[in-house]
Computed example of a mutant assay.
Amino acid sequence: MEYRTLGRSGLKVSTLTLGTMTFGGTGPFAAVGKSDLSEASRIIDTCIDAGINLIDTANVYSNGLSEEIVGEALGGKRKNDVLIASKARMRIGNGPNDEGLSRHHLIRECERSLKRLKTDVIDIYFLHEWDGVTPLEETIAALDTLVSQGKIRYVGCSNYSGWQVMKALSISDSHHQPRFVTQQIHYTLEAREAEYELLPISVDQGLGVLVWSPLAGGLLSGKYRRDSPTAWLLGRPAVSSLVIGARNEAQLKDNLAAASLTLSLDERLRLDDVSRPPVLYPYWHQQFTAKNRFGPADLVLDRSDI
């Protein structure tokens, strides 16, 4: 297993991360998976044996049951340097403060997640989605409190747009408060929109990228080849780890081999060519007028077809 530094932090994460949306299987998440504690324990043990050191969950997955199962399944395995990532933002009840990124909701949900996970600290805490109602200053200050209290170690965001990421980073920098070290995004060979803004921001601002659903929802079912798309993602700029899930231990073992697969240059170029996103404005204009002064972040978007 390869380990990569997560953004500008000193934290090393495995190139594959275990996603636990399949744990629990209550409510709408039952359609994703229904792994109980016994199955989840086998999945986690298989991952640890393969060298995976990051487990990703969220308070909204099966209404907290996923976190509970992770906490029970890990037990003393935390001593083996297994990292836990969790998230908050989504609605988890019927009350007016049961969603969002207010100080009230964020601190309360972090403390609830800690209890379910049976741990004193969450290694990476993600803002699960944008909240346009709560001032970002309030959200970042709440994260600062949680870091100061030793309840979380690193912070990140998920499913943000480019301007939202940059606004949050600006507030963190100006107030000397915790800065995102990572973002978790949707990015596949079939959906490369992240190359317009999110990957360039990651390169420029030093954010590590965790990719959710890297197999585009179909690879685990055997509909597509299990090699090329996953290996292609691991070669993209700023990508630190791919979050993979599995309905059972057998599915997981089928996909762990992706961590050691290497594509040839010809294979990579062919994949780039068939999946290249259209070059939108202002990128096509910059290609003609500014390419002599492109920096590393500008080069993430492939403009070779212009």
Score class of each variant (00 low, 15 high):
residue 79 K to L: 07
residue 285 H to N: 14
residue 271 L to T: 13
residue 7 G to C: 08
residue 147 V to Y: 02
residue 116 R to N: 09
residue 57 T to R: 09
residue 202 S to W: 01
residue 171 I to D: 00
residue 299 L to V: 07
residue 203 V to A: 09
residue 287 Q to A: 15
residue 108 R to E: 09
residue 91 R to C: 12
residue 61 Y to N: 08
residue 252 L to G: 00
residue 279 V to L: 13
residue 19 G to A: 05
residue 118 K to E: 13
residue 4 R to S: 06
residue 251 Q to M: 11
residue 130 W to D: 12
residue 202 S to L: 07
residue 131 D to I: 11
residue 246 A to Y: 02
residue 57 T to V: 07
residue 215 L to I: 08
residue 142 A to Q: 09
residue 188 T to F: 08
residue 208 G to T: 03
residue 200 P to S: 06
residue 86 S to W: 00
residue 272 D to A: 14
residue 107 I to C: 01
residue 207 L to H: 03
residue 154 Y to K: 06
residue 184 Q to R: 14
residue 16 L to P: 02
residue 75 G to Q: 12
residue 102 S to A: 07
residue 39 E to A: 15
residue 26 T to Q: 12
residue 235 G to T: 10
residue 5 T to G: 03
residue 274 V to Q: 14
residue 53 N to Q: 11
residue 245 G to Y: 11
residue 102 S to R: 11
residue 207 L to T: 00
residue 178 P to L: 05
residue 132 G to E: 13
residue 7 G to Q: 06
residue 125 Y to A: 08
residue 88 A to G: 04
residue 234 L to H: 03
residue 99 E to L: 13
residue 78 R to F: 10
residue 5 T to I: 12
residue 176 H to L: 13
residue 136 L to H: 03
residue 151 K to Q: 05
residue 232 W to A: 08
residue 297 A to R: 05
residue 3 Y to V: 00
residue 105 H to E: 06
residue 92 I to R: 14
residue 157 C to W: 01
residue 67 E to G: 09
residue 159 N to C: 13
residue 304 S to L: 11
residue 133 V to F: 14
residue 87 K to Q: 04
residue 54 L to M: 15
residue 118 K to N: 14
residue 114 L to M: 09
residue 74 L to Y: 10
residue 199 L to N: 01
residue 286 Q to G: 13
residue 189 L to Y: 10
residue 31 A to S: 15
residue 161 S to Q: 14
residue 166 M to Q: 10
residue 141 A to H: 12
residue 236 R to A: 09
residue 147 V to L: 01
residue 195 E to F: 05
residue 215 L to G: 13
residue 247 R to D: 06
residue 233 L to S: 05
residue 85 A to P: 00
residue 203 V to P: 03
residue 105 H to L: 02
residue 99 E to F: 15
residue 75 G to V: 04
residue 220 L to D: 11
